[in-house]
Design a protein around this nucleic acid. Structure first.
Lengths: 334, 334
DNA sequence: GTGAAAGCGCTAACAG
DNA sequence: CTGTTAGCGCTTTCAC
């Protein structure tokens, strides 16, 4: 037999007063006698009363829940973002409902349905790399649920976003490599169709161009994870066309490059310099330690949550894109 | 003006039928005419009806939400666990509500309150290293909310748990070091008062004892993160009392040891071998790559969720502790 | 200062 | 097969 949790009614019955009075006493309503308020709160504490948040939500049409949809929690960047979201949420008595799309566009649509059904008060998303159709996101807005994108956006959706300046960050990283004497720079790029991938490619190309270096498409490899980066690097070494630098779209790709380069006895950074992206903990563990772009996931999540809460509280100014500053963290790999 | 979301009533009104019929049609109740069912489902789709999960929860006294409380998402192990929980949850139409205690016992209590108020159907927890009082956990059970611990348990609470055999894993790791000729083995241990810390210490000591090595308490340092491990290792090197092996309570501590040893020009594993714990991605990135204990966080989360769902579905057999198998992954650092 | 009544959106008896 | 009714637990008018 399920012991039922203490309700307002129970308290009312015991004190022989009405449920509405109990409710008022519990939420410190102004016109309630000090006497009954103390009696109610005392008994509530004693009986270990916990308000039923579900009933409150239904009544007030407000769940106090923020939905977060990300591709994978098991990624330092994404878990940092969640951490930032959760921090601000809990400061403001909001809870965080988390779904993973697992980079599947179908799962992402399900996640969105879930969030709408759960009547979350707002949603924070970084989309799948396979998302083609932006309609599901539009449906969120049609349901008048505030939506904030971070990192990976969906072009054409008019809503808030928290990003970094991917172009500039990639430009600076590449430019730094050139300034330190490198000219034959390979880029391990992110998946096609993702804003962050193409902007980083663009920044990389522009830096080459501005320094009078031919930006050959052959220098760009689609390669955004550790294992693939190891293989790709091995192939490049085997081809005999050794670059003098590799710029990775993330730290894992850069770490993979480092591992394979060292295995082949290639000196880093003397022969080949390596730059990563994100400044995750692995960048201090590689040997040599990794020069990388600092991209503060926690701050991005925190800011995204801040914007979202403002929207939830009725802010109606036109959608804005906020840029979190980045900078190059220089270590031994360059 | 907030556009109100489509409800069962709206559909009923338009089709001139009763809300209950609409409800039945939507959940494919057996005794409903094919005709009205199709009409209702058609209109629901057209109007983009999304059931109000909050109302459903209130009605059925079941939220279909699993609460997860962990110290920090930004840890490969914990995010793996969450990932496993989320995978099973979403397969079973459950959602995941996530809170971080941030290793603060007070925050943990708040989190528990939140979960109870949110009427989650079950809770999965790995406790804070500062948790002294187990009463808050007991209150969960008093509220008849199923509770599963993982990794870090609270002794004295009679409930399910998903663990690894910390003693055995530490024993095997230490024994392996001894078998490979090491005898002066330092242990970087986890924080006091945590089951995983003391069990790993015990396993380490027992392996030494069984091999006729004196388990000196001076060989044990409290040191469970990368930075502190770097410093600790530097101090040990400076002291001149170089061990011939270091066994870390986690991979970060082991990685810190590796970094400082190399910096001092000490050969790994020839002079000092290093073993970690968890088999996180960093173990393949250190140079030399790290021998470590495989501890599958995803499986732990998945299994914890499995057990929890059984309890939610009424399973009342006595609390069980399930052990996820571990094994030593041998790499270059030994 | 307190109580009665209504309703958030949904589902599950119970009737017919 | 469908409608009526009631109620999950809470808050909020509206009376008194």
């Amino acid at each position: 037999m399920k012991k039922h949790q203490v309700t307002i009614k129970d308290i009312a019955r015991i004190l022989s007063i009405s449920p509405s009075t109990v409710s008022r006493a519990l939420i410190d309503h102004p016109d309630i006698s000090k006497n009954t308020r103390d009696k109610v709160q005392g008994l509530a504490l004693e009986m270990n009363y916990q308000p039923n948040a579900i009933a409150q939500s239904l009544r007030k049409s407000k769940s106090n829940v923020i939905g977060v949809i990300i591709p994978q929690v098991v990624h330092h960047f994404f878990s940092s973002v969640i951490s930032g979201v959760e921090a601000l949420a809990s400061q403001n008595s909001f809870n965080v409902l988390m779904c993973q799309s697992g980079e599947s566009a179908e799962k992402e649509i399900e996640n969105i349905q879930t969030m709408i059904s759960s009547r979350v008060d707002g949603i924070i998303i970084s989309r799948t790399k396979n998302t083609k159709d932006c309609e599901p996101f539009r449906r969120i807005l049609e349901n008048e649920i505030p939506l904030v994108f971070f990192d990976r956006i969906c072009p054409g959706i008019e809503t808030d976003a928290v990003l970094i300046d991917d172009f500039k960050a990639a430009y600076e990283a590449t430019d730094f490599l050139i300034k330190s004497g490198k000219r034959h720079i390979i880029h391990y790029a992110g998946p096609e169709g993702l804003n962050i991938s193409s902007l980083r490619i663009d920044g990389y190309k522009q830096a080459l161009a501005d320094n009078g270096i031919n930006a050959n498409e052959d220098l760009i490899y689609r390669c955004d994870d550790f294992e693939i980066a190891k293989e790709t690097t091995e192939k490049i070494i085997a081809s005999g066309q050794l670059p003098d630098a590799i710029f990775g779209v993330n730290d894992s790709a850069a770490a993979g490059a480092i591992v394979s380069l060292k295995k082949a006895g290639i000196k880093i950074p003397e022969q080949v310099a390596v730059v990563g992206f994100t400044n995750s903990p692995i960048s201090t563990i590689t040997d040599p330690t990794l020069t990388t772009v600092e991209q503060n996931g926690y701050d991005m999540g925190y800011l995204a949550a801040e914007i979202l809460l403002k929207r939830i509280n009725g802010d109606t100014k036109p959608p804005e894109t906020q840029i979190i500053p980045t900078h190059l963290v220089i270590r031994q790999s360059t």
